[in-house]
Nucleic acid binder design. Structure first.
Ligand SMILES: [Mn+2]
Ligand SMILES: [Mn+2]
Ligand SMILES: [Zn+2]
Ligand SMILES: [Zn+2]
Lengths: 153, 153
DNA sequence: AGACAAATAAGAATTATTCTTATATAATAA
DNA sequence: TTATTATATAAGAATAATTCTTATTTGTCT
């Protein structure tokens, strides 16, 4: 089975397991999450789903994203002052966020997966997640204007 | 000079250097930031400052916090769906966030300061900050009820 | 097919933050 | 010290993101 199929299958099983109904809206929202790159926000999801279900309400989008988050199907990603975004990839990975274009780019690194808090923290707190997040300027934004224009200057 | 004095001095110099006026509101807001533990939000700051300046407006609080952030006097801290919070400590340090009580607790660790992204990321992106954030349940919240009650049970 | 709990659409409500504008004031210089 | 002026402020309107309320619809299980 391909990656998309795997994800959809996990989605169906998660819903069943938790007693959630398999509605067309939920399926469309989950598919939109998988299709969108760079961690879509509720507005992105709504826009994508509207092409198929023009009457989808923002409330359903938000409610569904919250439901998915609660059962661990997706992870909410901080919006840094902008609207919250969502990540359909729940396997361990890390994020680079461009301060200029606000893209959030995934990357995978074993070394970072193994970053661990100091012992005195582990003794005091129950640590469930360790997140490493990079911020800076992405390759696209650090290029001197558009590549076509750059030749002219 | 003590730590508080040092901070206030740096604050005065930063304002001067950037040509910002040293208003009573700004001083009070900065002092409130230093006094509050666990990374206050705009509402916390407003409440603290109101005891001295009852007429401080939310707009001034937000505007001032934004100004301070821009000149690097403080750092905004993600609110995870709740209101944004602010950190008057700009020296390198790390955060543990309790998912239950929402406290954000500082800790210092040299090893985590040195966490570095993989080379292929550094080649592609200009990385300006690396944040390690822990989430979980804090010592207070994981205690079985209140300590006084615990003895009874 | 029928029953029913759960999900939805629509739009009101709430919350956090920013904007607008008229007034006040910190900094600077006469 | 006072006058000048650009900057900061208070007040409240406006905006944006998210949640809530309610009446209706629809999956799921007989
Ligand atoms: Mn991701
Ligand atoms: Mn801190
Ligand atoms: Zn970029
Ligand atoms: Zn706690």
């Amino acid at each position: 089975m391909d990656k998309l199929g795997e994800n959809l299958d996990r989605f169906r099983r998660s819903c069943k397991a938790k007693g959630f109904r398999l509605t067309p809206q939920r399926i469309a929202i989950y598919e939109a999450l998988l299709a969108c790159e760079h961690h879509p926000g509720a507005e992105d999801i709504s826009r994508a789903v509207r092409t198929i279900y023009p009457d989808i309400s923002m409330d359903t989008v938000y409610r569904t994203l919250n439901t998915f988050s609660k059962i661990g199907l997706i992870h909410p990603v901080d919006g840094h002052g902008r609207p919250r975004r969502y990540d359909p990839i729940v396997e361990p990975h890390h994020h680079f966020r461009c301060k200029q274009c606000d893209r959030i780019i995934d990357f995978y690194d074993e070394r970072l997966n193994r970053v661990s808090p100091p012992d005195y923290i582990l003794q005091k707190f129950t640590v469930s997640t360790v997140k490493v997040t990079l911020e800076g300027v992405c390759d696209q934004c650090s290029q001197p204007r558009k590549s076509t224009r750059a030749a002219e200057l």
